[in-house]
Design a protein around this nucleic acid. Sequence first.
DNA 1: CGGCATCCGCCCAGATACTG
DNA 2: CAGTATCTGGGCGGATGCCG
Lengths: 126, 126
Amino acid sequence: MLLPNPYSADCPTRQVLDRIADKWTVLVLGLLEAGPRRFNRLRREVEGLSQKMLAQTLRGLERDGLVTRTAFATVPVTVEYALTPLGRTLAAALRPLIDWAEARFGEVAAAQRAYDARDPGRDQAA
Amino acid sequence: MLLPNPYSADCPTRQVLDRIADKWTVLVLGLLEAGPRRFNRLRREVEGLSQKMLAQTLRGLERDGLVTRTAFATVPVTVEYALTPLGRTLAAALRPLIDWAEARFGEVAAAQRAYDARDPGRDQAA
DNA sequence: CGGCATCCGCCCAGATACTG
DNA sequence: CAGTATCTGGGCGGATGCCG
């Protein structure tokens, strides 16, 4: 087998990264890591996530074998989403990223302010 | 200070995650982790990355204090991009994700095939 | 409750041309 | 080489309405 190379356009790892690149995937996976959740609960817990995008995100995750969708025949119907074992391994791989964001966001924000405040024309020279 | 909460729309960590969510950021950071790179080299090494999107991505990374841009007064001009210390910590946090993609993409692809081949109407019930 | 279908506006990304 | 400027179209995502 050829080495997987995300820098090649047709490599499957690119598809995987593209899914992660989805605006909501990381957040949804993060919530499901704590336990199964119902549709509207996820919707409420991720601020700014529309019902359409949530449905779309969940279908994509289900298709990739990362979450399971289970419908209970209650009235009205109840649907629960949960991580698969594979999904749990991805959530674990994402953990350092979440931690980084929480630990370093202050430095990023400071860099942004410094960048925006500097002389617009200037340039790092050498 | 309030706890950073990526699930709140106005939390700065959301901005950080949104940057990672960029289609190209992870790939560019991955390349720069191996050492400084010039503009056109990056462009060539990431298949499918247009010059416009690369410029845009690099400007965003520079603004966030994750990469430095250094211009050499050669003819024609030479520009080199390199990770900052902060950028290196992010690249390190991204490593498990890259490794996951390379290790597990086969399972994801298999799940996709199984999903697409199944009876379109069916549904996981309980 | 948990969706799907439809419509639509807006932004993003590609293509192209030009510049220091 | 390393960009910026401008135009343009397609698609993403929001809003709304309907259904099991």
